[in-house]
Design a protein around this nucleic acid. Sequence first.
DNA 1: TTCGTTTTTTATCATTTGTAAAATTTTTAT
DNA 2: ATAAAAATTTTACAAATGATAAAAAACGAA
Lengths: 187, 187
Amino acid sequence: MNLDKIIDAIFELPEESKNALKESITKVAYPKGHILLKADKIEPTIYFIKKGIVRAFINQSDKEITFWFGKEGETVISMKSYVDNQNGYENIELLEDCEFYELKKSNLQKLFKKDINIANFGRRFAEKELIKTEERLIHRQFKTASERYSSLLKDSPDLIQRVQLGHIASYLGITQVSLSRIRATIR
Amino acid sequence: MNLDKIIDAIFELPEESKNALKESITKVAYPKGHILLKADKIEPTIYFIKKGIVRAFINQSDKEITFWFGKEGETVISMKSYVDNQNGYENIELLEDCEFYELKKSNLQKLFKKDINIANFGRRFAEKELIKTEERLIHRQFKTASERYSSLLKDSPDLIQRVQLGHIASYLGITQVSLSRIRATIR
DNA sequence: TTCGTTTTTTATCATTTGTAAAATTTTTAT
DNA sequence: ATAAAAATTTTACAAATGATAAAAAACGAA
């Protein structure tokens, strides 16, 4: 997934503003298993996923709970760090070898102050992430685990292929045993 | 809760920008039981709660599920309408007589295009709502119903007084009977 | 107040989900 | 190719939650 496509999907910037933004972005790559973001610290960097898949998890009384998957075109960001300059709660682990576009939060914030188009880009970015998060919340409250698994199968069939079921079960808020039962009844 | 305080809590605007924003805002009041927003339509208005308490709910197979409470200082908005110009999923019901500050989305969007401070105000608004939504999502995934009730008691003791337990139970994702059991074990 | 309605609690039983452990399948490394 | 490790499924039992009905408590209008 190339950078222009990722930027354009958020907000269509005039050429000049887009170039200013792109000047602050560089490419990086890390191997499967790498921890890209660590919880309980202020994270200064934003990543756009060019290639690969990652998961966000927290450690909850000696076990890991996965609460987000990100793949090509999505943004890896500690919202608490980005928005409030506070410690984030997410660890981000790479589930495949990955390539990212990297952007320093400090550079972006400078642009917010002097370029109205980039301020509106930042607004649209937050708004779109907000809608995604709200939909996840509502989905989680209103659907059973079984329905949520079926939706996942339908909306992201590749995820089931690329991510091990233990992580999927955790993401759905159930145990792996329970997910096995659900899969058995569907088949 | 006065308007200046609500605006300032989102983003500290220069006097001129703040006045431009305030020119678009008017006051309205509705009685307890009024439905302020209806699901499955595009909602053109944003409300800031001056006084009172409201709930957001959806109709899910013949019963209502509450998924949000808003009180003084909070914003009543259909995010889907605001962000994507699509039908929202929330109904908003007033649980007390309420007073609001009312702002038309169309006026706000005009200001986004010409005033960088208001564009950044809009960015901060979305960012802060995003953090709140993300925290609700994480809380819901990681805590048991019993823990969520205890947190609610601690963080919003007034809510338990002002809102009937059936709505609280729905908000927590459990039946009212189950909430009664939880309350019985805590006492 | 007092009656009627609504809300909350309690009790019982059915269903779902979790825990633990074993069995099976798949993946990885040599 | 084979052994070891990791992931997934299955089973049995325990714990938590849901559904329903009915009783008790709280609330509101006349």
